[in-house]
Amino acid sequence: MRVSNRTRTLAAVAGGIAASGVAVAAIGLVSGVALSVYFARKIVTPPGRADSALRVLAVGESTIVLSSAAESRAPGRFSLWFADESGLARIGPVVSQGAQWVARELIEIEKGVPKSGDNARTSGWFYLTPAGLGLHFEEIAIHTELGPAPAWLIPAANPSATWAIHIHGRGVQRPETVRALGEFYDAGVTSIAVSYRNDREAPSSPDGRYGLGSTEYRDVDAAISFALASGAERVILMGWSMGGATALQTLVRSKNRAKILGLVLDSPVIAWGPTMDLHGDLNHIPSRVQRGAQAVLSSEQSQFLVGTAQPLDIAQMNFVDRADELDRPILLMHSEDDGYVPVGPSRELAAARPDIVTYEEFDTAGHTRLWNYDGERWLLAIRNWLATVLSDDVAAAE
Rank of each mutant, 00 (worst) to 15 (best):
S195N: 06
S195A: 05
Y196H: 14
N198H: 11
D199Y: 05
R200S: 14
R200W: 06
E201W: 06
E201V: 07
A202V: 03
A202S: 07
P203V: 06
P206E: 11
P206S: 10
L212P: 03
T215Q: 14
E216H: 07
Y217Q: 11
D219E: 03
D221G: 06
A222N: 08
I224N: 05
A227H: 03
A227F: 09
L228V: 11
S230G: 09
G231F: 05
R234A: 13
V235R: 07
V235C: 14
M238G: 03
G239E: 10
W240M: 13
S241Q: 09
T246W: 04
A247K: 15
L248R: 14
Q249R: 14
Q249D: 02
R253F: 02
S254D: 01
N256C: 13
N256H: 15
R257G: 05
K259M: 01
L261E: 05
L261R: 15
G262F: 10
V264T: 15
L265R: 13
V269Y: 02
W272L: 11
W272K: 06
P274H: 06
H279D: 07
H279S: 10
D281T: 11
N283V: 02
N283P: 00
H284S: 15
S287E: 02
S287I: 00
V289D: 02
V296W: 04
S298R: 12
S299A: 11
E300F: 08
Q301R: 12
S302L: 06
F304A: 15
